[in-house]
Computed example of a mutant assay.
Amino acid sequence: MTVTGIVIKNIIRKLLAGQDYRSEVLSLINAEFLQYVVDFFKRIAWAKLDNENVTADWYKKELLCLDSLTKEEVAVHSGLNMKTISNMYNSASKQIVLEASLEHYDTLYDAINSLTEQDNIDVALTIKFRDVSVDLNINESLIVINTLAVKRSALRGGYWSTAGKQVEKPLMIALCALFKVPKKYYDQRNLPESQRESDFYLFDDTGKDYPGEVKLMGKGNPESADAVYARDSRFLVANKLSDTNKQQMDSEGILWVELQTENGYKRFEEVLKTLSIPYEPFTGDLQSTLDRILPVILSDDVQDSVTPEVVLSESEQRNESGSELLVEF
């Protein structure tokens, strides 16, 4: 799954403004899911146009066994997700996915048959497309509903993970640019293998590195604090932190920034000051300044890398004093 630069910029704006960013991700999930639903229903309608009977056998033939289907599509159509298959079989090859999906589909269909035979309940879906009506009985309807539920779950997990990973470094670069930290103090080039686990690094004048974590999770989520301790991080930037998280980090000497509070981003100044990173206090208008910073960090297109090129490449004109800023304002 991919996220465009436009969405990443919108998320950064909301985070730095102390707002909840989740609406941006939910909009992506909803848009792709609804498009999937329409396409999925069209496929069934086209089968009727081709004079095929929409049966359990048809579903298996058209939505599980076609060579043109990707393994991800096969898994979802059967009611499974790829992670479950990988965990169960220690493999996610197409052959394994197909075998697991067919087995699961047969089990699911038998369970639905047993349920509908015992309970006096009826559910029917009617799909209309170009004046052609397709009716699905209760068994077929429940299979379709289950498939849509699995697809929604897969989209949700994928987009939350992707958005988090692709926002982390651009967010930190934007913070550094806001406080006019010279680029050399957050240059992410050529990090040793031992330093690639942390989300972001700051460097002082001696070259000493300070690993940091960026966690866009809900309040009180233990993973936020766990990652900081596991990677021996010096600072954490998060959208929400519980009082317990803050107290624990204070006692361990770990610096933290909670963005979803009024002017929460300004606490990053304390991080820079404590770590002896050169900076200037920010007193300007946040959104108008971001108008200048964000286009330098990201284009509006789909982002191929989680680390913007602006902190990976040499400057065209090398500044020997080491005071070059990402953006002048």
Rank of each mutant, 00 (worst) to 15 (best):
M1V: 10
V3W: 01
V7K: 13
N10T: 07
K14S: 11
Y21K: 02
S23W: 15
S27C: 07
I29L: 02
N30Q: 04
L34Y: 12
F40H: 04
F41D: 03
R43C: 04
A47E: 05
V54Y: 00
T55D: 03
A56F: 02
K60T: 11
K61E: 03
L66D: 12
T84N: 05
A92G: 06
S93G: 01
I96Y: 13
L108D: 01
L108T: 04
L115P: 00
V123T: 10
T126I: 07
F129G: 04
L136N: 08
V144T: 07
L148G: 04
R156D: 11
K165L: 14
V167H: 09
E168V: 05
A177V: 02
P182Q: 08
K183V: 15
E193P: 00
R196D: 08
Y201V: 11
D204P: 05
K208M: 10
K219M: 03
Y229F: 15
L241E: 10
Q248A: 11
D250N: 09
G253Q: 04
G253F: 09
I254T: 13
L255S: 12
Q260P: 01
K266Q: 12
I277F: 13
F282M: 03
S288T: 15
T289N: 10
I297W: 15
T307R: 08
L325W: 08
